[in-house]
Nucleic acid binder design. Structure first.
Lengths: 330, 330
DNA sequence: CTGAAAGCGCTAACAT
DNA sequence: ATGTTAGCGCTTTCAG
């Protein structure tokens, strides 16, 4: 079933069929009707691959994330897909994991497939050094980075101000009388580093000393959180509040504290990050940070679409997070 | 940058370039080297769109799920993407939501884009009646249904035996002395209905009566679970155990019970479903069902790939779930 | 072993 | 207003 068959059935040339399909230029109403009848009868649908080849645009966006299973990524991807769909774009999803090689390979494949643009979800995409693959790809298609920052002609960034958010947490905790506050994180991502900076900044702003044992790096996940409590304990780091860089870490911390007989929030206040469903499942429920992933994703999709339409837009946008207070730090 | 430029640089015809790219037939080593040098030097990469057009295959799979934010779907999609990637396929992701119209539209778009096959994730894709869009699409490309069942020439199904799993839960509960067991669910999906059947079957097998107040339909999510407790309470349905069709419902049930001063598992035992991260975050941690979504997804991807390679395979495969006992029902 | 040329299904410039 | 035709970038007969 192709355009030739339609043309034959309608008794016109393929050019005319193409015209009515694309609602372009002038076609005599009479002819148009004949063609539309043929279209309907044959149940014709244009081959998008052929269209892509000639139009040199696929209406497809490549979305890279390290791991969709992470709820932050899942949320971002959901919104991205919805928004792009509204604008007529498909989304090719790629789970790159953390390895640089894999990210590079994926980006190459997406370019081969002629995506119109890319969105890199999460701060793992900002490498400590060597972001040349991103720069290279941006020579070909526009790239939007969701929650990391990278400068480049054809690169656009939307990020949440994680530093400010954590600094705000510290301030809130200080107001509640806390002076010994720990910070727990897992991976050394751009975003985790921003949060750590926020912690440091907040402590300094409150003129509080920072003991090195209060900054704890652990494995990811609940077990990582639980383990962080052990590390803190072993280090003799008594503290009355803990800020975790992820809700799941905080959930583990809750478990760890409970195991040590500490009450939350009476003995120790706990803060998570992301406002994921986890924060509402734990007992006590977690105070956390709503880092507005939906808003970021909506913005990211909007930016990319505007760029694709040839608009000139600002290269970066920051969104402010919001603290959510629940039982673990009322 | 196209094959013509490479040909020119190497001083050969485009046919020869194509041959070395595709490692096909005989090319004189000497010529091959010249071409490979040109390839490297120009940093040439074939245009996959053009290839797709002539090959009539895109190496792309459409994956439809109602909502990636759901951790079950996210898990499925992660594995699907990984597995397909290994075999050289890309994945176009579609979040269809629950509406039939949207599902139909998406399937049409994917066919237009000439995907090589589709995977429908989750039991929302099996309609009560009117699955003609799926049947129609299966005339064009093979379709794999992950966790629902539909018969068709070119349709393949991988499902978890949810009925058996819930029936097993009931049996376990009965062994622990429970006789008054409730079942809580949210949407009336194929899978939820299978679980409900399992509940009924299990109760009957244990020769226990089923009171209608024990079967509760509520909204989705934590609040739905919490609400289910109120409904049960209002209905005067005293029971000593509750089985939820989803972990998040179970998490809500835990909260609801706590609010009513009931202790879990002492007063009421609670079972979730999915073995999601939620089950390990709650206090007490949830007993739940590991419904092997990873295994299902791996199997689904494997089946589709085999079908695409022309293999004849069985049209359906069932995977057995596993009960996971934690604090809410030790 | 290599090249010329047809064709995948479509759009768009150019004729008529 | 409509048709003819030349590509888009590639693979694949078919000749040589």
């Amino acid at each position: 079933m192709n355009i030739y068959e339609v043309a034959k059935k309608a008794g016109v040339s393929i050019a005319t069929v193409s015209r009515v399909i694309n609602k372009s230029s002038n076609v005599r109403p009479e002819t148009r009707e004949r063609v539309e009848a043929a279209l309907k009868e044959l149940n014709y649908r244009p081959n998008e691959i052929a269209r892509s080849l000639v139009a040199n645009t696929t209406h497809t966006i490549g979305v890279l994330a390290s791991d969709v299973r992470d709820s932050y990524h899942a949320n971002a991807i959901y919104i991205l897909e919805q928004e792009f769909r509204k604008k007529g774009y498909h989304v090719i999803l790629c789970n790159t994991g953390g390895e640089l090689e894999k990210k590079k390979r994926y980006m190459g494949l997406l370019l081969d497939k002629k995506v119109d643009g890319m969105v890199l979800v999460g701060s793992v995409f900002k490498e400590r050094k060597g972001n040349s693959h991103i720069l290279d790809a941006s020579q070909v298609v526009p790239i939007v980075m969701l929650n990391s920052l990278l400068e480049g002609e054809n690169i656009y960034c939307v990020a949440c101000d994680d530093k400010a958010a954590v600094s705000d947490i510290v301030q809130s905790l200080v107001q509640r009388g806390h002076r010994e506050i720990a910070f727990v994180y897992d991976v050394e991502s751009f975003s985790a580093m921003a949060k750590l900076e926020g912690y440091r900044f907040g402590m300094q702003a409150a003129e509080l000393p920072i003991r090195p044992e209060w900054i704890i790096r652990t494995e990811s996940g609940i077990d990582g959180g639980r383990n962080a409590v052990n590390i803190m304990d072993a280090g003799g780091a008594a503290c009355t509040a803990v800020i975790a860089s992820e809700d799941n870490l905080a959930a583990g911390i809750l478990k760890g504290l409970k195991a040590k007989g500490k009450k939350v929030p009476e003995d120790v206040a706990v803060f998570g990050y992301n406002d994921s469903v986890i924060a509402r499942c734990t007992g006590p429920e977690l105070s956390t940070v709503d880092n507005k992933v939906g808003e970021l994703a909506r913005e990211a999709a909007g930016m990319l679409c505007r760029v694709l339409q040839g608009e000139k837009i600002s290269h970066s946008k920051t969104i402010t997070a919001e603290l959510v207070f629940r039982e673990s730090c009322p």
